[in-house]
Design a protein around this nucleic acid. Sequence first.
DNA 1: CCGCATCCCGATAGATACTG
DNA 2: CAGTATCTATCGGGATGCGG
Lengths: 115, 115
Amino acid sequence: MKIKCCKTNLLAVQDTMDILKGRWKVQIIAALCYDKMRFSDLQKEIEGISAKMLSSELKDLEINQLVTRTVLSTQPITVEYQLTDYGQTLKKIIEHLAEWGVEHRKKIIGKVIEN
Amino acid sequence: MKIKCCKTNLLAVQDTMDILKGRWKVQIIAALCYDKMRFSDLQKEIEGISAKMLSSELKDLEINQLVTRTVLSTQPITVEYQLTDYGQTLKKIIEHLAEWGVEHRKKIIGKVIEN
DNA sequence: CCGCATCCCGATAGATACTG
DNA sequence: CAGTATCTATCGGGATGCGG
């Protein structure tokens, strides 16, 4: 598909960003990319996130049908989150973001060494 | 490059998102993807952005070496912005975001029609 | 273990007016 | 035309405590 530079595409980009907005959503999706995870494991995996934010961000993602929430009748209760098929369609984007981030960090480190 | 689900990659993703964060940066880059543009044209192209935001977001992008700023000695003065080669490396990501946004909108519209 | 409720603060960004 | 300055409203998100 050919993307042209016009308002339609600016809006399309914005639609996507609206769903991924906030400090944590992309990281949550990235963490779920390769496996379902429990709430507490997600919180360990994602450095610095509070339970409140994890909970509310997951709810947003659930509303947008990117993740499913499964309550397990363990004692005490545990909850598993997992990407939906639809959520999986974001995987490629996440991978690109990660690759770019890695390259960017290299570039920054290179600069630091130069000086 | 193989991306694994580990903290390193969550951080890499976050590095990228930090650079693209805020309501407007991605749209600005998208607008500049296929041509350099003047300040006023950018403001027309990007629905709803104020001069203040456009100015400060462009400054951030310039600091991160994603765009260049060129003052033309016209009367009155005009300023052109254009993606750097480094900024161009974000083009693929933007395209993916746009494609996903288009698909997502289709999905949403489908839902609306269903109900 | 999971997650909601409340309180609170700093960052973000909109409106408006002004300048070289 | 391309910004800057100021003022304000809003929002993200941290801390803490409670409840199922």
